[in-house]
Design a protein around this nucleic acid. Structure first.
Lengths: 204, 204, 204, 204
DNA sequence: AATGAATGAGGCTTCATTCAT
DNA sequence: TATGAATGAAGCCTCATTCAT
């Protein structure tokens, strides 16, 4: 099963991420994780010392995934509209791949505020507040988006992209959608979100 | 005395709801619930048979709370715009009061699909699909809102209202907001959401 | 098995004392203790919270047993010689009943110095230093015992009484003694010890 | 290289002896021993096959140390009084160097009776019963010591020398002695023990 | 109705030991 | 010879649950 050495640690970590972020089984036991990774349960402790530390490692990875997501868009030299467009694509795709990532982070944050995690958030904060916010404000000055604060704009963006995926189970129940219909609905949202956030004139 | 019976059961249930929906402690033990309710741990089993059944009862309550929320708006004979306005108020208020309700329902749905719950959702589904959707379509015909499906409209509405509260911890970290600043930010959103969802012309 | 209520806690504690003090099985598991006590293993945690706390409780009991031993002699109003005589009887008997008590205390002390235990020792210290030592010095003044410090006298007394029992296994091996022969040897020591510690003249 | 072999094995064994006999950490894990020896944990198994066998080896060493102690005195052609005098010196010194040796042997004996160990004891038994006992009896015939059995005489000797060191922790607590005061007390005992065991007349 | 006592199942962790290099 | 990786056994502890009053 899987390569040895440091590969094993990565393999365990990836398995845990799959279980937590893709399948949403937040209460998975170390035994379940070990089974799914095809390793002995004790090995998890060998590499991560304790269940809590595995959680922490995975959580940090999760936050870093968010960070990378955001950064990859911000760093590129493209128009604001294009940035938003790509951001929607990216967030949507990530959300479809790891539908429980956000919920995991949120419930984890609620359970314990760890210094390690706070550091990870700092990087996101910098990206968002220092890099993105000024660009939003510039657009407002240009009149291409509604005159609201940059924070509200970003929250709108995140809400429209993320919420439907986070609430997938709920939405499927309420609107009676099967997997494929749900997927379609999510993909259709890109244009809708663009229309909502950017003024029509800007598009024409 | 038969009177005490119901009182104690309700008291336990309300305590559990507080712990789950207000405080987000989804892994609270029966002992913690009993402590907080000021009763003996065995009493929880006496009234609810098992921890799972208490969960189910509380979950059902939670879904019913959502249902009542929706119904109370739909049933009233007021203008569409007024309906949306009141809906935002209500959802916002509920979300501030029970910030973990949605997350609880979502993670619970993920863990097991119970028949009991499905029934509860049917009522919401009826309300949303049979009652509200036609009204949205009528508005689209009138041109007061963008020409998207009723489902997408409703998802936009829910996303913009609910996501910020569900992700409270995350948003506070990323945007560096204290409790009061966060509260203000949420309350300011009403006008923003209205502007987004309803065409300007409709307002004028 | 055994009475309920507080009886159970005492029963577990006594069982543990038997295992530790009489049988010398210092590494006995909670499962072994539970088995021997005829109770469920979890009950040990119910009453003592943790294995360590059970150890502490038993250790405290052990030290208190030493204290009672000493005090019962000191308090009585009898001649010095009679006191020593009874002390030898008592220590010998206790050592035969609980041959591993001292070793248990010694190894436990080595592992961790707990405040709780120190308090228990204070009582013994008071008894020995404040009550007994002066009496020994009085006897030295009278010339009935050799002119050594009270501390050394007491250590001689303890050594001669306790060591053979503490080292039982060793002595049985080296001198090739069966159980009965060992017992006889111990009982014969009373007169020997008296002769050693108290001057012949005092006896005549 | 064959040379390294023996060196490493001895190093591990000496480290274990330090941990067990000098520091009294009877529950030390193989990891702790490996750490302290500065070697890989697996190496302990490479040289000793199992933790138990390392214990046995160390135990055998410990018993042999006792044997050598005894023999070195017995073999020399000096007066009885001088023999006793040197024996006290030796035992005292050894006890101060390896205060937990006796306790280790005693608790080990209690846990399992191994054939290997029995053989080691046979040598001590021969020394004590065949060589030393006759000499004690000869002294009794000469009237230089009290008329007790040789066995009891030897037990007295051992008790008075060994017990205070074995019970070091206990004695320090009860008599409130710091390290230096304790050491002094032990060294002062030589004369006291001689006076006790050998009749005054013999001294004059 | 209510509760202290007791239990069984299952989780996390440690440890000695073995494997593969 | 030496070691990092991996494993199985066993220990402690917690928890939901049941029992007996």
């Amino acid at each position: 099963m899987a390569g040895k050495d440091i590969q094993t640690e990565i393999h365990i970590r990836e398995t845990a991420k799959k279980i937590f972020f893709k399948e949403g089984r937040f209460n998975a036991t170390t035994q379940e994780i070990a089974n799914e990774a095809g390793v002995n349960r004790a090995l998890i402790h060998y590499y991560f010392r304790s269940r809590d530390l595995l959680f922490e490692a995975v959580l940090k990875d999760g936050i870093d995934m968010m960070h990378v997501k955001i950064q990859s868009i911000m760093a590129t030299d493209i128009s604001f509209r294009e940035k938003i467009s790509r951001f929607i694509d990216l967030v949507t795709q990530e959300a479809l791949d790891f539908p429980y990532l956000e919920t995991f982070i949120i419930t984890a944050l609620n359970e314990k505020e760890q210094s390690l995690i706070l550091n990870s958030f700092d990087k996101i904060k910098t990206e968002v507040v220092d890099v993105f916010a000024p660009k939003v404000e510039a657009e407002i000055a240009l009149g291409t988006i509604e005159p609201i604060t940059a924070t509200q704009f970003m929250i709108n963006l995140l809400s429209l992209c993320t919420y439907p995926v986070v609430s997938k189970a709920l939405i499927q129940k309420v609107f009676d959608l099967n997997e494929e219909a749900f997927r379609q609905l999510i993909l259709e949202r890109k244009e809708i979100i663009l229309n909502i956030l950017l003024k029509k004139k800007a598009i024409e």
